[in-house]
């Protein structure tokens, strides 16, 4: 599988623009994300992980710097074109009733369907392929509201796959899951990036899992700067340790808090 650079950011500044003031979250972010790899974005709450992902997905305008997608600047894409390049899985839980898994995954085909959103034979094949890749064919006819959180997350991943985008962004896909499901989801994403050659970029709080499974790690600290490397590199050059150089006591409290959040 080729490992091409699909996303490059240069001196990127992210944040929110209000009516009167601008809230800058991170500045001077630079780095590249490659296809065929699973890249994990790690950082404490408030470091700006979601803001970065939102900026990369073009939900938020960048406050400075450049984002290049597949060699072209992000702003040169129309909303329509972008929907065939980036697929997202968001933290927000979709409150859907009376929609089957198949239909929800089929929504991923929207950029390709016509005026009424009718799925063609080819679209249905893509949906089946996406369901098979994620391994949720047995859920096909289940209603979305009857699924567990882990199953739901897989359905949303299948939706992103059906969208047939070379790039997939996931905002904390493991946040509400139990440990086995977390492992399963991350392995699934690892497999997808390697087998399908997708560029998978996700944010997570599950440090140990990310270090074990990810090909590349982006470490984001509160100052808004980012360290990039393979898990081995980051461990060896001590940036991981520096990054988590909290006193032992504080770390335990954080872990406790994280557990409670579930």
């Amino acid at each position: 599988m080729t490992h091409e650079e699909t996303i490059r950011i240069t001196a990127l500044a992210t944040g929110y623009t209000g009516k009167r003031h601008v809230k800058r979250v991170s500045e001077q972010l630079s780095g590249a994300i490659r296809s065929g790899e699973l890249t994990c974005l790690l950082g404490s709450n408030g470091a700006g992980k979601s803001t970065l992902l939102r900026t990369l997905s073009a939900f938020l305008p960048p406050l400075g710097g450049e984002i290049s997608l597949l060699g072209k600047p992000l702003e040169s894409y129309s909303a329509r074109a972008l929907s065939t390049v980036i697929g997202v899985v968001l933290t927000e839980r979709v409150a859907l009733q009376n929609m089957s898994v198949e239909e929800l995954v089929g929504m991923g085909r929207s950029p390709y369907t016509g005026f009424w959103g009718r799925l063609s034979e080819a679209d249905r094949t893509q949906v089946s392929k996406a369901l098979a890749l994620v391994g949720i064919e047995p859920l096909r006819r289940r209603m979305v509201q009857t699924l567990s959180d882990g199953e739901r997350q897989k359905v949303m991943i299948a939706k992103a796959l059906a969208q047939e985008t070379p790039i997939i962004f996931l905002d904390e896909p493991t946040a509400f899951l139990d440990y086995p499901s977390k492992v399963e989801i991350l392995h699934l994403l690892h497999r997808l990036s390697h087998e399908a050659g997708k560029t998978v970029f996700l944010s997570t709080h599950d440090l140990e899992l990310a270090l074990q499974i990810a090909d590349r790690i982006w470490l984001m600290d509160r100052g808004g700067s980012v360290h990039i490397g393979t898990p081995e590199e980051l461990t060896e050059d001590g940036s991981l340790e520096r990054f988590f150089s909290l006193p032992e006591e504080e770390k335990r409290i954080k872990i406790h808090f994280d557990l409670n959040k579930k």
Binding site: L82, S83, L90, M107, G117, Q163
Partner: peptide
């Protein structure tokens, strides 16, 4: 004429936008 739009809106603003709406 708005059926596809409405179907996408069911997914919430984020997903709808990502799907080109």
């Amino acid at each position: 004429l708005l059926v596809k739009t409405l179907n996408l809106m069911l997914l919430g603003d984020g997903y709808a936008r990502n799907l080109g709406l």
